[in-house]
Structures are given as C-alpha cells and as structure tokens.
C-alpha cells in the first residue's frame, strides 16, 4: 500500500516552488518577532522530522533515537567552536558529517545484525542514551555543566542579530529536506528503499542490497538531523547532555512526520505546522491553568490518530482517491 498523499513528479516540484516563494516572502510579511520565532521553530522541527522521515517514512525503519544524531551535530558545532575556535559555519558542515557518521555506525551495527521493527527502534533509543551518558561523563563536552557558546552576534559567527538570518538558514535546510524527499521518490535509491519498507524479504529476493540501502538512508537521515542539531546549538547557544541526547528530541522527531504523513514529501512540514499551531491554540484556550494546555494537546494528538490514521497528508488523499482506497 502506498501511504498517503503523493504529490509526485511535476506537481511536487510546483508545490515546492510554491513553498519556496512563500517561505522567502514570509519574513517580509511577519512583522512580529514572535511569529518569526514561531516560524523558525516550525521549520526546525520540520527538518528534524524530515530527517526521521527519510529513514522511518521512506525506509520503514522506526527510530526512537534520533537524538543520537541531533545531539552529535549540536555538540560537534559547539565543542569545535568553544574548545578549538573553529568557525561555526565550518562546524555546521562538520555537524552534518558527524551526524551522518553516527548514523552509519548505528546503522551498521543494527542492520548488520538484522534488527527490524521495534527491536531497531529500541536499539536506537539505547544508543542515544549511551551517548547521553558519555556526554555527561566526558570532560570536553563540559559534562553535566554543559557547553555554553559565547555570545558574539555576527553573521560570520553564525549568530545573527536579526532573527531573519536564522530564519533563512533553517528555511534553506528545510528546502534541502524537501529536495531530498523528492529525490527519494524519484530515484532508484528511493525506489529500493521503499521496496524494503514494503517487504524487505521480497526486495532482497529481487536483488536489492537491503543492508547498503538502509545504511545509506540512516546516514542521510543522521546527517540532516545533525545539521538540525547544529542549528539548535547556534540559535540557543547552550547545550547539556539532556537537551542534546535526551529522549525529548527523539520523540519530537517521530511525532512530526507521523502526524503529518509518513513517507510523503510535505508530511513533516504539515506535521510540524499543525502540532505547533495546536500547541499555541491549546495555550490560548487553556490560559494559565498549569498543565491543561499540554493535556489538551495530548487529546488532540489522540483524536488525530483516531480520525486521521494516515496523517494529515492522508486526509487530502482520502478525499481525492476515495474510490481507489476501497480496493485496499
């Protein structure tokens, strides 16, 4: 079964062009720093979710440990900068490489031993925890005290005085994520990856090197999550092991694409937008009553799963492809 809304080929490219134009114009329209920050956070979680989507959505490999890649990217940028004075723009690139390498390492071990489904999910969770514990014990990460990146607001230093600078960085990253997803949908690599998702044994029988393909996917996914981590580090300038490697990030990373629509180009963008809007509305509705806003958020989450089993992207499809779906 092909999951959810599939904007393919030409249509997807047009949609991406639309997103690109809206994205470029948006900061000119948003006169408010609050909404600009809101947009930045939505895009940030979109990138993180897209990273998860590459592996989980297109490859069917559910990770509970994307914090492992995210945190590595964040620490690479921060530590290289603080300890070795390496420019954060270079650190940004290295963060992507670092995230990719951690992805490859974890992928190598777990795919080598044929872990699938929830076993794979739990092993990624365990790796993230191992990294958290190590980051907490190591001296060069600052241990539990954490790493603080000195405040020096110049664009050359990847710290923008104006939030618009951060916006365009994360927006560009988001576009790269979209292009990656588009590429997956239109390349041999992507086709093989999706074949593995549908039926790994069948794909193998057809001569797909499942190990290599999955390894490629997790490295790509890790690299994108690592870039998101580097962005986080530069935007907030402070990291500790729990922020970087804690389970919170891993959960956010999977929430966004599953809600939006797994294995779709725009699923993560939809998911991150809807989740943040819901979060904001819950705050408005519940006012200052402690905890009720998050409870409402959780209820909306449950309701979405009850009524939108294929994510938000699936909603659009259901209307359009109703007759076809019956056949499934």
């Amino acid at each position: 079964m092909m999951p959810s809304l599939r904007l393919s080929g030409q249509r997807a490219l047009w949609a991406m062009a639309g997103v690109a134009i809206i994205g470029v114009v948006l900061p000119l329209l948003l006169r408010s720093d609050f909404w600009l920050n809101f947009a930045i956070m939505v895009l940030f979680f979109t990138v993180l979710g897209q990273a998860w989507n590459i592996l989980g959505g297109y490859g069917g490999q559910f990770s509970f440990g994307h914090a492992a890649f995210f945190g590595t990217g964040a620490y690479v940028t921060a530590v290289l900068q603080v300890k070795f004075g390496i420019n954060p723009w270079l650190g940004f690139v290295l963060a992507g490489i670092g995230g990719g390498l951690v992805g490859a390492a974890i992928g190598f071990l777990s795919f080598r031993y044929g872990l699938r489904g929830s076993y794979f999910a739990l092993v990624t969770l365990a790796f993230a925890e191992v990294l958290r514990i190590l980051a907490n014990a190591a001296a060069f990460t600052g241990g539990g005290v954490g790493t603080l990146i000195p405040l020096k607001q110049t664009a050359a230093n990847f710290q923008f005085v104006d939030k618009t600078g951060f916006y365009f960085v994360i927006f560009a990253l988001m576009l790269i994520g979209l292009l990656l997803a588009y590429w997956l949908e239109n390349s041999r690599f992507g086709a093989r990856l999706m074949a593995i998702r549908e039926n790994e044994d069948a794909a193998r029988a057809l001569g797909v090197n499942a190990f290599a393909i999955k390894l490629g996917a997790i490295s790509l996914s890790g690299a994108l999550a690592g870039l998101a981590g580097a962005f986080y580090a530069q935007y907030f300038l402070y990291l500790d092991p729990r922020l970087a490697y804690g389970p919170g990030i891993s959960v956010e990373a999977l929430l966004v694409p599953i809600i939006g629509g797994m294995g779709t180009i725009f699923g993560p963008l939809l998911g991150a937008t809807v989740l943040h809007v819901v979060g904001e509305i819950a705050r408005k509705v519940m006012g200052d009553a402690v905890g009720l806003n998050l409870a409402l958020y959780g209820m909306v989450l449950v309701a979405m799963v009850l009524f939108l089993p294929n994510g938000i992207a699936g909603l659009a499809r259901r209307q359009r492809l109703k007759p076809k779906e019956e056949r499934l």
């Binding site: 959960v251 599953i258 409870a295 959780g298 989450l301």
Partner: peptide, 10 residues
C-alpha cells in the same frame, strides 16, 4: 505508538 504517547501526555 502515537496514541499511547498522546495518552501519556494527557
């Protein structure tokens, strides 16, 4: 996964 996560948050 999602629904149990949602329930936990609630």
């Amino acid at each position: 996964l999602l629904v149990t996560l949602g329930l936990a948050i609630v």
